[in-house]
């Protein structure tokens, strides 16, 4: 059977599949559907310094082969997450990646300092790409200098490797990737959602209360593949790829584009069993296309 193991900074993965941040909560709900030990890793919902309520509703809307969301980083705050959510995840033998967000450099640093010290956390995913909050998030992800400065500061305090999650809402993704790589990022995670809109014809106003939302799902897969491919041409850094993955074939595509591992987000909503299903069909799919391991497929992508 094709070898699914992948070894990345901080992350020894039994397979390259992990649920994406924000689409899996802190794992509890999905643990009622299947044994989370099957997963390569779990990326938990964004943590901020204080609890956040997020945006008004409606927060989601469907689009052709995709969806918009403007949750607005709702989360109970880093202290509550450490106290109430992480202990539950301790019972699983799966590396946990903490997604870190904030409005200021200080907030990012504070959250990273606290959460990266927790033994269950194996890596940090630095969310500089949330398009749905007024302050913080995306402005850190669209200016290379700001992104590099933040990465540097977070690296100074983090006890675990830092993967910087890039925004696709930029003109030059390679410039962004290089900036955070030079600043010390251990890896990249890409892509976050693309800013979009939809309108309600009856009410004659945007469906999403926040007006704009982040587009995800199969609709963004070609963009994700293109961006990962461009960054892979320029850099050797590990990449966790995501954007519209719904099948083992999609995973092979992402590996060929240059991703080392992948995350599945939106597809969990339609099929709560999507992650274990993809993991189960991955070995045969790899073999079908002539690969004996994830590693071999990944190297084909260089």
């Amino acid at each position: 059977m094709a070898d699914l193991n992948v070894s990345l900074p901080g992350l020894n993965l039994k397979n390259p599949i992990m649920p994406a941040s924000g689409c899996f909560g802190f794992g509890r709900e999905f643990s009622e559907f299947y044994d989370l030990n099957q997963l390569g890793a779990i990326v938990i919902k964004a943590a901020t310094g204080e609890a956040r309520y997020g945006n008004p509703t409606p927060r989601v809307a469907e689009t052709p082969s995709g969806m918009l969301n403007a949750i607005g980083l709702q989360n109970p705050g880093v202290d509550q997450i450490i106290e109430k959510e992480l202990p539950f995840l301790e019972s699983f033998d799966v590396p946990i990646v903490a997604n870190v967000a904030g409005s200021t450099v200080e907030e990012y640093v504070e959250v990273t300092e606290k959460i990266s010290r927790h033994p269950v956390i194996q890596a940090i995913e630095l969310n500089i790409s949330c398009p749905n909050v007024k302050e913080g998030g995306i402005q850190f992800g669209t200016d290379p200098k700001t992104a590099a400065h933040l990465t540097e500061k977070v690296k100074e305090v983090s006890e675990k490797p830092v993967y910087v999650k890039l925004s696709p809402n930029v003109t030059d993704i390679v410039e962004m990737a290089k900036a955070v790589a030079d600043a010390g990022a251990d890896g990249l995670s890409m892509i976050n959602t693309l800013t979009g809109m939809r309108f309600d014809l009856h009410k004659k106003r945007p469906i999403i209360a926040n007006e704009t939302g982040g587009l995800s799902g199969p609709a963004i897969k070609p963009i994700a593949l293109r961006m990962i491919y461009q960054v892979r041409q320029a850099l050797d850094l590990p990449i966790i790829g995501m954007g519209g993955i719904t099948s083992a074939e999609d995973v092979v595509e992402f590996l060929l584009a240059g991703a080392d591992a992948v995350a599945i987000g939106t597809a969990n909503f339609l099929d709560p069993y999507i992650c274990p299903n993809v993991i189960e069909s991955l070995p045969n799919t790899l073999e079908k296309y002539g690969f004996s391991s994830v590693q071999e497929c990944r190297l084909k992508g260089e």
Binding site: R28, E29, R59, I71
Partner: peptide, 17 residues
């Protein structure tokens, strides 16, 4: 009623105060 994402409590799409 609210527009839902996951429908199982994992995504924070359907909250109320």
């Amino acid at each position: 009623e609210e527009r839902m994402g996951c429908g199982i409590g994992a995504c924070f799409a359907c909250v109320c105060k």
